[in-house]
Amino acid sequence: MIHIPVVDLFAGPGGLGEGFSSYKDQTGNKVFDIALSIEKDPYAHRTLELRSFFRKFPEGEAPDKYYEYIRKKSLTRSVKQQHKLRSELFDRYPDEARQARQEAWHAELGKSKELFNRIDSRIDTITGNPLTTCWGVIGGPPCQAYSVIGRSRNKGKIGYSSESDERTYLYQQYLRVIARHKPDFFIMENVRGMLSAKLNGKSLFQKILEDLRHPGKHSVFSGNTAADLEYQIYPLATRPSAPEKSSDYIISAENYGIPKPDTGSSC
């Protein structure tokens, strides 16, 4: 079966990606494959990479050495010893370790043009596969600038303003990938406080929604080829009966005019 490739941005330890990776169709076959995940926090990335390593083995066939590593790691607080145990595990299964490293990247989005080029090249390789007829982007851009907890902490900072906080605009890195690569769908998760956050006195949530609808038009990273790119947005609230009162959102979207393939994976 052909899996639908997924690129996970601001992946954290990989919770959203785990959901996609474990989803199966009615016949019991997995539908999605995490082709690339990116996270800047070193501890979250280690979890991300380890879970990727685990998924490289057929379901139910992870080696005993993997579980032995988990047990031994839980018994030591020495970071040096934990790294040694991990190296021993990865050295024993070099092919799976190489694939995990290729999938899970430790990098900070928005910090260098070189990283942009690496990401673009990797996604071009993923989507350039003739068997790839549908693919998507998932992830949750950092939210410390407008989450309830983040705003509470920021109030205590002298001279702080959300307009000057670069974290407010990190979702634009998400836009850049969408505008450049035009995925068939994307899903962006966010946090409590997003609906009430303001930017220059206006709703940040509404701005993000509009930017996501027209990523090529609004993204500062876009090119002319993406100017007409348009997505249909589906906000999925935690309380569907009263979405306007909900505090948590998952934003789902699909590209207008998605071609429906006759064979292979389909969106």
Rank of each mutant, 00 (worst) to 15 (best):
R151N: 07
F205W: 13
Y249Q: 01
F185N: 01
D33V: 11
H106C: 11
E189K: 01
G159M: 06
R55A: 11
Q81G: 04
K202D: 11
S196P: 00
A100E: 08
G193C: 02
S112A: 13
R167W: 01
A197G: 09
E59H: 09
S78I: 07
Q81P: 02
E49L: 15
G201R: 10
K24D: 03
A227D: 11
S203Q: 08
I34W: 03
K56D: 13
E163G: 08
T133M: 06
L195T: 09
S241D: 13
F54H: 13
Y66R: 07
P141Y: 01
H181A: 10
G12F: 02
D124F: 06
M1A: 13
R118D: 14
T27S: 13
N129W: 04
E103M: 15
T127R: 14
G17I: 04
V137F: 01
I233T: 06
G150C: 06
I2W: 10
L9F: 08
G136M: 04
I123T: 04
D95N: 12
K72W: 07
K84S: 14
V6L: 10
S203E: 04
G150Y: 02
R86D: 01
K260Y: 10
Y256V: 12
F57Y: 09
R51K: 12
K207H: 11
S22M: 13
T47V: 15
G19P: 09
H181S: 12
T263I: 13
A197P: 03
D248H: 15
K72Q: 15
A11L: 08
E18H: 11
G128A: 09
L109W: 06
F185W: 07
R118G: 00
D33K: 15
I149Y: 10
G136P: 01
Y234K: 09
E189W: 00
G14W: 05
G19T: 07
K157L: 14
R176K: 08
I119Q: 00
K111E: 15
F221R: 02
I208D: 00
K24Y: 03
Q232V: 07
